[in-house]
Design a protein around this nucleic acid. Structure first.
Length: 782
RNA sequence: GGGCCUAUGGUCUAGUGGUUAUGACGUCUGCCUUACACGCAGAAGGCCGGGAGUUCGAACCUCCCUGGGCCCACCA
């Protein structure tokens, strides 16, 4: 003990340096999960962070620190906690990162080689992310890290795909898709960004069939004229009343198209008449579907005009064709004017080129027929906070079938081959990892339709959410260990941010429900986002992202973690604030000094001989009340409550009122040995409890203090005791003590006395039991 | 345009029908009181966004308005 105490003599403050000394010990604790421990199982499905090359910003790290506090607190409430850690390593962002890093282009690089380079990048990035997690003592099971690009994981993704294929959930369809010419793949809506671009709005005339009248149309995509299938005008628009249901003739192509009254056409935009083409934008998609108009595709997947565009335009790139057709229209004398306008153009966020909407043969996971069921499941799920459920419900209402195939390299391969003769898909059995782009189908494969024996492998991959959406099944060993799975699935909890409700949460419910007929978890804990000091979302493009490692090095991981826990209720957005981070660090130093003082007195075991003093009974009762509140907070997965309750208690009750009240007694000045021991016993009782209550949130300082003061077995292996019954009358008296203290301090202030000076003041009768302590605290004389 | 959320001292944040509205940071005043000046004590600062209603009683419930945020749709 004496040697341990040196740390107190040498350090008046808690800081990052001391944390570093504790780091090895804190991080060497093992958190392996043992399903047969007999304890109640608490299993968590945590987000495998995406290794995309972006430095992790502070908001993400803060969220993970809160998730860690939840895992730690559940352990300390006596549960057996499954707290896995994984890395999401598939998909376009890492491919983009590798392309940039090595100065290559995916499609110009042999697939094997490209995959190797992606993997190299991932390994570096992953290491950085693990280092960050370890720097704030993330306590997952690092002995069993999972990676979504591992053979084992991809096997699960493929097997679950095959399972769904067999139940008819997977449909193949040629639907208009967001297509990036540069990336050569269908991309998700989430991968699109919009940019204001200057473009031409061309006003030109269509002739009306069997009439000498003309109708003026305005378009930003005149090169799609050859794909025009209708002209829409607003039904209320008087200018076009006579044209409705007439037939117009497209200039240049001389094709007949109907003029249709439809509310989509806005009289105030352009000429008031809009041409519908396959496909200029999403509206065209909707309208063509709604009105069942013919589809005429004139742009190919290389971004060039095809034969349907006519001989003159064929082979031209979209932009060239646009120029060309404008001059062709001008020559034909049907251009009224060309305006320059700002137009919001959908661009591929990766290549920064405009996307085209092109019908492509892709696979979809059918969801439209079970939307009601999904909504029902969403309603069954307990969401914390409940209000965020609406985001999911709203999305379910508008979501459509999920396109799951991607024309990319670094991802889980679609496990399908096609018969060379009849093109019929061949589906292998579940239970293996398949790479159809470089391997033959399993031996003995025969086409079910024509008996053919030769196949071509599908060279596409899955959308990366296909992988991450079965994390709940992976961590519960759905494929590999049925017994384990039965014990852990459905999981107790999903933790994640509000930003991926539509994707990860939604897709996970969908996939897991289809496979297991159940919700994957009992509860979903949805955190808000970390914002910068002005309340702006942190993002790379704005350059306002804050690097968590810098903050942790400056203020310490515990200060960072305490800040994250105490700043806002789970679910709310939280603003980064340097001064509040500092405030957290100050609180830890306060706690450090409380411990320094108590350490001076040593400990006194409760041998049953100590007669507890009334003041000591009061603070112990208060501690029980605190324990009850904090335990409730932890049980509700809300570290905000314990963080703030403990801080309030330590700083506003324990240190200023109780410690001051018993300090002289603990020193033994003018008190009996029993009275001294009673004080020391209570001081340690309370401190121990504070450390236990704080340890899920601030693992470093509590580890160090626990080791120094209370023993060798780590605090992180202890449990938080249940609150004992207490006498509430004592608590009321305690409040009166605090009121009285303030009264004395005020009186001394008014009389310009220093706090140690003697004062004559009457102690209220109900505080008689505390009279001796109060007199010594305030130097009261009568 | 539709939906959801939100509005509490300078800043941030608790509080959901009932005595002087929580805490942190900041500010001001006085203090190095044998744990802590990253501290101690004291103080100032809020008609709880505006309006109407329900109620014996509202920061809290209802409606309207206004500001902020997010999502969806739209911008031929």
């Amino acid at each position: 003990m004496a040697e341990d105490s040196k740390i107190f003599e040498e350090n008046k403050n808690w800081d990052r340096r001391l944390e570093k000394e504790a780091e090895e010990e804190v991080n060497s604790l093992k958190w392996n999960f043992s399903p047969s421990s007999g304890k109640k199982i608490f299993s968590i499905d945590t987000p495998p962070p995406y290794t995309s090359g972006r430095p992790w910003h502070l908001g993400a790290a803060a969220q993970y620190s809160k998730i860690d506090a939840i895992a730690r607190s559940q352990r300390m409430l006596g549960k057996e906690v499954l707290f896995p850690v994984g890395m999401d390593r598939n998909g376009i962002p890492v491919e983009r990162y590798a392309e940039k890093k090595y100065g290559i282009r995916m499609r110009d690089t042999p697939r094997e080689k490209f995959i190797d380079l992606c993997r190299e990048s991932l390994d570096e990035l992953e290491k950085e992310m693990f280092d960050i997690l370890r720097s704030f003592a993330y306590s997952a099971d690092f002995d069993h890290v999972y990676r979504t690009d591992s053979e084992e994981y991809r096997k699960l993704t493929q097997s679950t795909f095959i399972e769904m294929w067999k139940t008819g959930r997977i449909i193949r369809g040629t639907r208009p898709s967001n297509y990036c010419i540069d990336c050569g793949t269908t991309i998700a809506d989430a991968e699109i960004e919009y940019k204001e671009m200057e473009t031409n709005l061309v006003y030109f005339y269509f002739k009306i069939k069997d009439s000498d009248k003309r109708i003026l149309v305005a378009s930003t995509r005149p090169e799609l004229l050859g794909a025009c299938s209708a002209i829409l005008v607003n039904p209320e628009d008087e200018r076009f009343k006579d044209f409705v249901n007439k037939t117009a003739i497209t200039p240049i192509y001389n094709r007949e198209v109907k003029i249709i009254a439809h509310s989509y056409a806005k009289a105030e935009f352009g000429s008031g008449a809009v041409m519908i083409c396959s496909y200029g934008d999403y509206n065209d998609v909707m309208i063509i579907k709604e009105l069942q108009l013919p589809e005429n595709i004139i742009i190919d997947t290389n971004g060039r005009m095809n034969e349907n565009a006519g001989d003159k335009l064929k082979g031209m790139k979209v932009k060239e064709a646009r120029k060309e057709i404008i001059s062709m229209l001008q020559e034909a004398g049907c251009v009224e004017k060309v305006e320059n306008i700002q137009h919001r153009t959908p661009m591929c966020e990766r290549s920064k080129t405009p996307i085209e909407i092109i019908p492509l043969d892709e696979y979809y996971l059918k969801v439209t027929d079970i939307k009601n069921k999904l909504e029902e499941l969403a309603n069954e799920l307990t969401m914390i906070p409940e209000q965020h459920k609406q985001i999911l419900i709203n999305w379910l209402k508008v979501s459509t079938d999920w396109p799951i195939s991607r024309r990319r390299y670094y991802g889980t391969e679609i496990p399908l081959w096609y018969c060379k003769k009849c093109n019929e898909p061949y589906v292998p059995e579940e239970g293996r990892y398949y790479q159809p782009w470089k391997e033959n189908p399993p031996e003995g494969a025969v086409c079910a339709k024509c008996g053919g024996k030769e196949f071509i492998g599908d060279d596409r991959t899955f959308d990366t959410w296909m992988d991450s959406s079965v994390s709940a099944l992976y961590v519960t060993k759905y494929l590999s260990d049925r017994d384990f799975y039965e014990k852990t699935y459905p999981l107790s909890l999903r933790t994640q941010g509000i930003d991926i409700i539509r994707t990860w949460l939604n897709y996970s419910i969908l996939r897991c429900y289809l496979l297991t007929d159940k919700l994957p978890w009992e509860k979903a804990w949805i955190d808000g986002m970390g914002l910068d000091e002005h309340g702006e979302k942190m993002s790379k493009s704005k350059g306002n992202g804050i690097d968590p490692t810098i903050v942790i090095e400056k203020y310490g991981a515990d200060a960072f973690r305490f800040w994250a826990a105490s700043e806002a209720l789970p679910g709310s957005n939280f603003l980064f604030s340097e001064s509040r981070m500092q405030g957290s660090a100050k609180f830890l130093t306060k706690l450090w000094n409380v411990a320094r003082l108590i350490n001076k007195f040593g400990n006194s075991e409760d041998t049953g001989e100590i007669q507890l003093n009334e003041s000591d009974k009061w603070i112990i009762a208060y501690t029980e009340k605190l324990t009850e509140e904090c335990r409730k907070g932890y049980e509700e997965l809300n570290p905000f409550i314990p963080a703030n309750r403990v801080r309030e208690f330590v700083w506003n009750v324990f240190a200023p009122h109780y410690i001051e009240l018993v300090k002289a007694r603990a020193y033994g000045e003018n008190f009996s040995e029993n009275e001294r021991k009673s004080a020391i016993y209570a001081l340690n009782y309370v401190l121990r409890r504070i450390l236990l209550l704080m340890s899920p949130i601030t693992p470093f300082i509590t580890q160090t203090l626990w080791n120094t003061l209370y023993g060798d077995e780590s605090i992180h292996y202890q449990t938080i005791p249940e609150a004992k019954d207490r006498d509430d009358k004592l608590l009321i008296l305690g409040d009166k003590i605090m009121e009285f203290n303030s009264k004395v301090w005020n009186a001394k202030k008014e009389q310009k006395l220093s706090l140690r000076d003697a004062i004559k003041i009457e102690i209220p009768p109900d505080l008689k039991p505390f009279e001796k302590d109060l007199k010594s605290m305030h130097n009261i004389i009568n």
